[in-house]
Design a protein around this nucleic acid. Structure first.
Length: 1136
RNA sequence: UGAUGCUUAGCUCAGCUGGUUAGAGCAGGUGCCUUAUACGCACAAGGUCAUCGGUUCAAAUCCGAUAGCAUCAACCA
């Protein structure tokens, strides 16, 4: 083992990473990092399963970086973090891809290709890019266990899902019902929301819309109501009242069963004329929408003189009332036929009580009339409100999109032109015409709106009642809302806002999908639907199967091999009464697959109950924000739904269960990261060609730089504008700086043989600057730990960046350089080495979670010499813990003061064009209080050497020398004075130097504002030194610095000497001399510089390691150099 | 259409419970190679804090409206 630190041969992150990757795999570093924490408190992480049927993109890198860094951090903190990987394998995208590749459509399945072959194809396709995913996982340094991943198509996985479904079924939480879903009559199929979200499905179309009039029935409820009694019928056109409702789909009118009003919306009764029939009518509509139908100039118009053809409708408001006042009123059916007779309605829904005014919150006064025509079969809202008020349901359109028989002249007509019939006559127009004629239409017009179309047939879809299976999530709503409050959401607003609202407005989970490749719903049913059986395990199925087989069924079925279609569909089971049962055709939503992963990944409850018990719930999960209503929801919903069953199973296994440990929560903390956009803020898409290839990025810039960039550029939950330039900057600025600092350390540590073998020098024996950087370092540890615990890696990373750049590299190392190469190897030097070593070692540990490669490389190279840590990788080490005793805030403050002072002096020098190499005599600093002076005195040496001045002069008694500025301390005074603040502020700003001196001396001053005497105390104003007349002054905050720019001959000479040294050093370097080579120098005598060189000869010789400096009158082969505008001939030679 | 979030320098981002010179980095500008680093350092310049209104002595910050962008949900009379 070498006792020399290994130097990097240039900063090449990708090649460093390759070496580290090789080492990791050879030493099984990941596995070891988990094993080392055996017996430690587990920190549970769930991997959201990616789908490997597509290529991974850069957005996967950010979410996986986030997951990885949390897991690595927690591991370093002493937790055991197992990370079981997983693959999402079912679902529509897989099917669509297979169909595309085979060139088939859904209709061909079961015809051109058997379901068995089709599903086989899906199974093959689904892990197509697994290799690519594995490669990315490896290269980006994502530590996840891919040796034993959960795979959602696995029989065991499906069996766990069946167990869950059975539990829900037994509790009555799994039920079949009708739901209103997008349906394409042209294609004869329901559409998933995914299909509805394909680009181009929403098109602007012009449809015939109608405002129709429903005639109120004067029954007891109506005439007995308060609002009816309030109407003065003497002024009315007639005693007929009409409710006006608007529709863009007149074909739904025969199926009308109710009218919905907003309970708190204001409605009015208006007397007027029907613009088509010109008959006098009284209509009811929302007050806010009057303007849509009536012109202001028609109000209280000439009723008597109104005749046909008159453009202006006279109208008068007769009465006003709220929606809730008319709730329950009845109206006459608009278009009565056989098919929608009350008998027909009752035959479907015996309890139905249709043709009433009902109320719903979804009603708005944005458009229409504020009264919504309600046909429960053809709208989700309609269905819901219809069900609530039990008005029945009529589906007078068949699955081809045709009216059913029994609708008179409309029977059998297509409600939209689904067949591309050139002679198609729009039935909506005919219905409108009929209503016009019957004095039942008030306004008919073409209305343009966007309407969804089937992506396959391009025909308009309609909303249609279809059978579907649901999970009754609404039953558990309160629990889910309560539990959500205990989840640590990052960012918080997503949990409270987006997710919280989603929970508040939750509807039952529509679970079923009419597809082929997915988890089958384990429900078997007799043909008449009377008997049903839900299967909860393979054992149950086997038993039932055997029973049915014994009864003579399943002759051609081999047995239970695969829980997918078509195999399970071939299985016939026997009902309790001995009838055959077939499986219902539905599959379950793939979101159920992923939401069930906490259980199914361990094949719970069939196996691994102890493992499950230790790994539930998750301490942390992270995915894209698009998963809020996806995975985050399904995990949460299932956690709530299945709580008691989980308790029961764990108890059975003798595992202690309580609500604190298993509250029915699937995860305790969740980070939802934003999207990755291109550098212009556009979404990345293949079409635009702005997709960033993660492999290229990592190969070119390294995973560390990429990860660091992704994490520090923006908070994970903000959208990230991905710009390659940003990665380059990170590489240069951050990794470059750290690299140089390491190389610097190694350069000298190798010379001196520093191996941290000397005993740790106590802080109080170290110089100020060492104590300062160690104080800052420990402050940094505190900050980083706090941020990391709060899932704020961005803040953590930025804090590390600042430390490396501003504190360590550009202050500590810069100021301490001499200590490393000058002098003997004794206490001060060792102190410097120990300090810098500690900084480097701690830093790489702090950054290890985010940049796992470079940190490990540096750490191992440091450790190879010092062997302070007994282990193979930084990821096996413990995260640094801050040493409070090392933190000295006063010290950090005064070092800041030194940095600020230096910066001000440099600024002044630049202003007057005097370079730093030219020494100056002094700077003046007005000190406002003794503390400030004391602080400055401690760092005076640092400042003077840094800015090359001889001394600092402190100004305490300042009246007359410097001019001061005073301003009110708004925070303090604002509270005290309130409204008088403005006047006082003006007065204070006008203080003379004398008044400022007075308040400083007396500690208070009285002033008269608006005739009132107000006493100001010293602590209520901020006094700063602003200017020193005749001096060059700069200030920052309360710090003011003046620079004496007088150049005496002495100073000039010294400046020349320094310039000369600089030139000689350059020559040394150019000549390739070793650092320790002694030289001798000859200078061709020059009158202008002679004094400078003689006076500072000793200094010069010491600096340039010259044994002698000779003045000669003649010089051959010399080099011409320029020293402050004077040319000089010198020769520099190595000695010996 | 709704919910949520965002809008601060040319670009990427800070700015805590309101307090008076709104901060960094990059790019651009100027100047600097003192034995770590020119892939660097220093300095200076860059702003109607999206717009309008309100609350307040005081608003980038709190409230309301508008516009634009984004995500999700929906598109319904």
């Amino acid at each position: 083992m070498s006792n020399k630190y290994q130097e990097f041969s240039g900063l090449n992150l990708p090649s460093i990473e390759q070496a580290i990757l090789a080492k990791w795999s050879e030493s099984q570093a990941f596995e070891k990092s988990v094993e080392l924490r055996n017996g430690a408190t587990p920190f549970v992480f769930y991997e959201g399963p990616p789908s490997a049927n597509g290529m991974p993109g850069i957005h996967h890198v950010i979410s996986r970086t986030l997951k990885d860094l949390v897991c690595r951090y927690k591991t370093m903190q002493g937790f055991q973090v197992k990370r079981k990987g997983g693959w999402d394998t079912h679902g529509l995208p897989v099917e669509l891809q297979v169909e595309k590749e085979l060139g088939i459509t859904k209709e061909d399945i079961g015809k051109k290709i058997s379901i068995e072959e089709y599903n086989q194809k899906c199974r093959e396709t689904v892990l197509r890019y697994k290799d690519k995913w594995d490669e990315l996982t490896r290269k980006m340094g994502y530590w996840v266990d891919l040796n034993d991943p959960y795979i959602t198509f696995d029989n065991k996985y499906i069996e766990s899902l069946w167990w869950l479904l059975k539990k829900l079924y037994d509790k009555g939480l799994l039920y079949e019902s009708v739901s209103i879903q997008p349906y394409s009559p042209a294609a004869g199929t329901g559409l998933s929301s995914h299909e509805l979200n394909q680009p181009g499905t929403y098109k602007d179309v012009k449809d015939t819309s109608a405002v129709v009039m429903f005639k109120a029935v004067k029954d007891a409820a109506l005439t007995g109501s308060n609002w009816y009694k309030s109407i003065d019928f003497s002024g009315l056109q007639s005693d007929e009242l009409f409710f006006m409702a608007w529709t863009t789909t007149p074909w739904t009118l025969p199926s009308n069963l109710g009218l919905t009003v907003g309970p708190n919306i204001d409605y009015v009764l208006v007397k007027t004329f029907n613009p088509y029939t010109h008959l006098p009518v009284n209509v009811i509509l929302a007050k806010a929408l009057l303007g849509k139908y009536f012109k202001p100039e028609g109000e209280n118009g000439d009723f008597a003189g109104y005749k046909e053809g008159e453009k202006l409708l006279p109208w008068t408001i007769v009465a006003s009332f709220k929606g809730k006042d008319i709730e329950g009123c009845r109206y006459e059916q608009l278009l009565p036929y056989e098919a929608n007779s009350l008998e027909a309605i009752k035959s479907i829904t015996p309890s139905a009580d249709p043709f009433r005014i009902i109320s719903g919150d979804f009603v708005t006064t944005e458009d229409g009339t504020g009264i919504v025509h309600t046909a429960p079969a053809f709208g989700a809202d309609d269905y819901k409100v219809g069900k609530k008020f039990d008005i029945g349901i009529l589906t007078l359109v068949d699955r081809q999109g045709r009216f059913v028989e029994g609708l008179g002249e409309f029977s059998s007509r297509y409600v939209k032109n689904y067949k591309d019939d050139a002679d198609y006559v729009d039935v909506n127009v005919d219905i409108s015409v009929k209503l016009k004629k019957e004095n039942r239409a008030f306004k008919v017009e073409k209305y343009e709106h966007s309407y969804p179309h089937c992506w396959r047939t391009d025909k308009p879809i309609l909303y249609y009642p279809l059978d579907a299976w649901f999970i009754k999530t609404t039953d558990l709503k309160d629990r889910m809302v309560e539990l959500n409050k205990t989840i640590n959401w990052k960012p918080k607003s997503t949990g409270e806002g987006r997710f919280g609202n989603w929970l508040e407005n939750m509807v039952d989970w529509n679970l079923s999908r009419s597809r082929y490749w997915g988890t089958p719903l384990p429900v078997w049913r007799t043909e008449d639907g009377e008997e049903e059986l839900c299967i909860g395990s393979v054992a149950e199925l086997t038993e039932a199967f055997d029973k049915a087989t014994a009864a003579g069924y399943n002759k051609d079925v081999k047995g239970i091999v695969d829980l997918h279609k078509p195999f399970v569909d071939d299985i016939t089971l026997l009902s309790a009464s001995g009838k055959p049962m077939k499986r219902v055709p539905d599959l379950v939503d793939v979101w159920f697959d992923s939401g069930a992963m906490p259980y199914a990944q361990w094949h719970f409850p069939f196996e691994n109950k102890e493992i499950f018990a230790q790994n539930y719930p998750a301490d942390f999960i992270a995915e894209g924000v698009d998963q809020t209503r996806g995975w985050f929801y399904t995990l949460h919903a299932l956690g709530s739904l299945i709580k008691e069953d989980v308790h029961e199973e764990l108890k059975k296994a003798g595992i202690a269960v309580n609500d604190t440990k298993y509250p029915g929560l699937a995860y305790k903390a969740v980070v939802s990261n934003g999207l990755v956009l291109d550098k212009n803020g556009n979404k990345m898409s293949k079409r635009l060609g702005n997709v960033v290839n993660p492999f290229e990025t990592i190969d070119t810039f390294g995973a560390d730089a990429t990860r660091w960039y992704l994490i520090t550029n923006a908070s994970p939950w903000d959208n990230l504008k991905f710009d390659i330039e940003g990665i380059k900057e990170v590489q240069r600025k951050f990794f470059g700086t750290l690299y140089n600092t390491y190389q610097f350390f190694v350069l000298y540590a190798n010379v001196d043989g520093f191996a941290f073998t000397e005993k740790y020098i106590p802080l109080e024996e170290r110089p100020e600057i060492d104590r300062w950087i160690l104080s800052s370092l420990n402050t940094l540890i505190k900050k980083v730990t706090l941020y990391m615990n709060d899932y704020e890696p961005t803040m953590a990373g930025r804090a590390i960046e600042t430390f490396v750049d501003e504190h360590l590299s550009n202050w500590y190392v810069r100021l301490c350089r001499r200590r490393f190469w000058k002098g003997e190897y004794e206490q001060d030097k060792i102190s410097a080495y120990q300090t810098l070593y500690e900084c480097l070692e701690t830093l790489v540990k702090l950054m290890a979670p985010v940049s796992p490669f470079f940190s490990d490389a540096v750490f191992c190279q440091l450790n190879a010499v010092t062997k302070r840590f007994n282990g193979g990788s930084i990821h096996h080490a413990d995260f640094p813990v801050a040493n409070e005793a090392a933190i000295d805030t006063d010290l950090e403050e005064r070092m800041q003061l030194a940095q600020d002072t230096s910066s001000l002096v440099l600024s002044l020098r630049k202003k007057v064009n005097i370079k730093v190499r030219q020494p100056l005599q002094k700077i003046l600093i007005p000190v406002l209080n003794p503390e400030m002076k004391a602080q400055l005195e401690k760092v005076a040496d640092l400042i003077t050497s840094e800015v090359n001045v001889k001394e600092i002069q402190y100004l305490t008694e300042t009246e007359g020398i410097i001019s001061k500025k005073v301003k009110p301390n708004f925070k303090v005074l604002g509270n005290k004075l309130g409204a008088k603040m403005k006047a006082v502020s003006a007065a204070v700003n006008n203080f003379t130097q004398h008044e400022i001196a007075e308040i400083e001396k007396a500690g208070k001053i009285a002033l008269s504002v608006d005739g009132e005497e107000i006493v100001l105390n010293l602590n209520e104003v901020d006094i700063t030194a602003e200017d020193i007349p005749g001096w060059s002054v700069a200030n920052k905050g309360t710090l003011t610095v003046a620079l004496d720019i007088t150049l005496t001959d002495e100073l000039k000479k010294e400046g020349n000497a320094r310039e000369f040294v600089n030139r000689i050093q350059n020559i040394r370097k150019e000549s390739g001399f070793e650092l320790t080579d002694r030289i001798f120098v000859q200078v061709l005598d020059n009158a202008l510089l002679r004094d400078s060189l003689t006076d500072f000869k000793n200094y010069i010789c010491a600096e340039i390691l010259a044994d002698n400096l000779e003045y000669v009158s003649e010089l051959q082969g010399g080099i011409e150099i320029e020293v402050n505008d004077t040319l000089l001939n010198v020769s520099v030679n190595k000695k010996g």
